[in-house]
């Protein structure tokens, strides 16, 4: 037996000080495990977080595009467009995201590759980032369609009629009147969607996209320090949410500029 045995190991043989020993041993280990340099896994987690934020940003932007188009289709489109959009939003909101992600991922890559081979090109591997953004964006689009539709309906009708009376083209009307005027009504719902998007990126880990949840799972699996790593990942997600809330508050105040404050309105 070596003369200088680590205190944690020696203490663990006696039952009384077991918890103390474990706590001190894990406290010493946690810092090493989470350090950003290679023996620690902190860097891996941060890269994963970056991927998560990238996917969430891309998915939200794509969702906003689909949502604006969808809301316009639902409000001003013909009967067929309206019914098809109703089917889209209903189905996407009724099926679990996990199932949708699997279905869209397989179906999407399959369709693209079949189209490419039909046109005489080579099959391609679709990057995880692009696929993740496309899949989550499609899901987000259904929710933002409803949010933006409600926000457009909340705009006083006279503003849109006035813009039409000035002879604005539909594109100009959208850019100058509809989008800015609906923003204060849409921001709370869209902010909620952004928070959902950041959390939904974790689901992509199940399909095997490299982001924070999967990075955490790898780190935890290698080091066996499951609690430490999942706790650390939870803290990272929480910080992202809290930071987003801060930004959202600013954006909401900016979008409501010139309007009476909510407190006075009551």
């Amino acid at each position: 037996m070596p003369p200088t045995q680590p205190s944690a190991v020696r203490a663990s043989t006696s039952g009384a000080t077991l918890i103390d020993a474990l706590l001190s041993a894990s406290a010493a280990g946690i810092i090493e495990l989470l350090s950003p340099n290679p023996p620690g896994w902190g860097g891996t987690l941060l890269v994963g977080l970056l991927h998560s934020i990238e996917i969430a940003l891309g998915a939200t932007c794509l969702g906003l595009l689909i949502g604006t188009g969808g809301a316009y289709g639902k409000l001003y489109g013909g009967p067929v467009v309206r019914d098809l959009l109703a089917v889209y939003t209903t189905i996407v909101r009724a099926v679990p995201e996990l199932v949708l992600i699997l279905l869209l991922y397989y179906a999407g890559t399959d369709l693209i590759n079949q189209a490419l081979t039909a046109m005489g090109y080579q099959r391609v591997d679709i990057s995880g980032l692009a696929a993740g953004i496309a899949v989550l964006g499609f899901v987000q689009g259904a929710y933002s369609t409803e949010v933006i539709r409600g926000a457009i309906l909340a705009i006083p009708q006279g503003q849109i009629e006035a813009a039409r009376a000035y002879g604005m083209s539909p594109g100009l009307l959208l850019r100058r009147i509809t989008l800015p005027a609906m923003l204060p009504f849409a921001i709370p719902g869209l902010a909620n969607l952004w928070l959902i998007a950041t959390k939904d990126t974790a689901l992509l880990a199940v399909v095997g996209f490299y982001e924070l949840a999967l990075a955490t799972r790898q780190a935890a699996g290698v080091t066996k320090a499951y609690f430490t790593f999942f706790f650390a990942a939870g803290v990272l997600y929480l910080l992202l949410s809290l930071f987003s809330n801060l930004i959202i508050g600013r954006v909401e105040a900016w979008s409501r500029r010139g309007m009476p404050s909510l407190k006075e309105a009551r």
């Binding site: 077991l18 474990l22 928070l195 959390k199 939904d200 990126t201 974790a202 689901l203 880990a205 199940v206 949840a213 955490t216 799972r217 935890a220 066996k224 499951y226 609690f227 430490t228 999942f230 706790f231 990942a233 939870g234 997600y237 929480l238 949410s241 809290l242």
Partner: peptide, 25 residues
């Protein structure tokens, strides 16, 4: 705030893998 600010998947894995690996000690 904590429940709404973190993904359910992470909460689930923290409980199952994290706590589950601490208990047998």
């Amino acid at each position: 705030t904590v429940i709404r600010g973190t993904p359910l998947l992470i909460q689930l894995w923290l409980l199952y893998y994290g706590l589950g690996s601490l208990f047998p000690q």
